[in-house]
Amino acid sequence: MREFDNKILIIGIGNSGRADDGLGWAFVDEVKDRLPESFDFEYRYQLQIEDAELIGHYARVYFVDADIASYEEGFRLSSCKPNAVHGFTTHELEPGTVAYLAEDLYNNKPEAFILGITGYNFELELGLSEGAKANLLGALKFFDEKILNLVI
């Protein structure tokens, strides 16, 4: 089996057809062409159980998603703790549940983080709101300075 032991995975989550819910995909769109070889990226509408198998191959994972919470900087990076609790639906899993299953099923415990970027409009529209665009820029700057520069 292929090993990705020292690699980092970025998963952009959301739906670009729902305005600011496309923030996760927009983030990946912006960074994917300048990521070093140690990074991989994926797009997801929702996280599903097979993503537990995927993230188990990586040393570190960033889940990037739109967030309805308001942050001073317009985004927040937080640690993603494995969480055995799951809701009634299994069509969309929380990042913590995916991290839990990676450990439980595959004995892999990647370092996991959630990068939540504040969005404001989640209607059936294409394109980000002006506020979301500004928050995205802030998150990208943070990613370049605090994450990418440390890896390169």
């Binding site: 959301g14 509408y45 919470a69 929380e94 959630i114």
Partner: peptide
């Protein structure tokens, strides 16, 4: 933790 959005 980020809020999960319900998407059709």
């Amino acid at each position: 933790m980020a809020q999960k959005l319900v998407i059709d």
